[in-house]
Amino acid sequence: MNESRGLRKAIIPYIYVTPAFLLILLLIAYPIVTSIQLSFQDSTTSHFTIANYQYFLTNKIQLFNIGYTLFVSIATVLLSLILGFILALYIRFNQNKISKAVVALTVLPQFIPGLVAVYSFMMVVRNGGVLSRIALKFGIQYNPNMLYAAKGLISMNLWFNIPFATLLLLASLSSIKDASIESARDIGAKKMTLLKDIILPSTYKQIFIAGAFVFMSNVGAFTTPFLMGANNPQMLGVVLYREFNENMNYNQAAALSVILFLLCSLSAVVYIIVNMRKEKWR
């Protein structure tokens, strides 16, 4: 009797996990395995080949596309972390009507469908758009030149990602006790010291995690670069779409998927390392 209860206890967790595990197996593991398999096949003969990878890693245009994707993603990560962190600091340490309004504004973009946001943004920043028209009212000919350029893409990404980063960082900032800050102040700590010795050590994990998430969601982005990006260089999401839907080159598309997957796993590695690390000061 006792033995069967022990067995039962051992099995129950697996039963809980099984549905999710099966779903992951079906929807994530299986496609990954098939794409890896497909990526090493020749499109006509189905024989083993590494030509699909060779194409992306030697073709000048494709290398440029990979570099461009990394540039846009990393710029988005850095800027959204810096701006998000400042915003989170402001919200955490100021409790007034303005800061409450800022919180509401920060949450707002999560409720706007992405496509609507992209089109609205395009209407505002395009040459001859809202900004240009306002400038024209004051007799100034002004074209933002934001569309079809990296700066437009990065700005749009920031619109999506600053709120996300802010909310994540805010969560970890609110775990800092007011008492610790006050007592540090009492013994004469300056603002920079507070930031360096109390705030950063207790939030750096979240900063890395937020960065990892922002990076992952931007490396494979499609909608924004498709609508706002230039003809060249292109973000990998758009290149992948073309390989798959227009060139119908499934093997090359699979190879590019694997490359994208590897890029994304870079940030997964960061995520895992940061999570595993034990904090010395605790």
Binding site: N127, G128, L147
Partner: peptide, 23 residues
Amino acid sequence: KSGGKVVYPNKNQGTMDLLTNGQ
């Protein structure tokens, strides 16, 4: 051109937007 770089917009609507805006 936008920002000095030649642009071929994506989608039929992309060029139509340029025409609408007088670009």
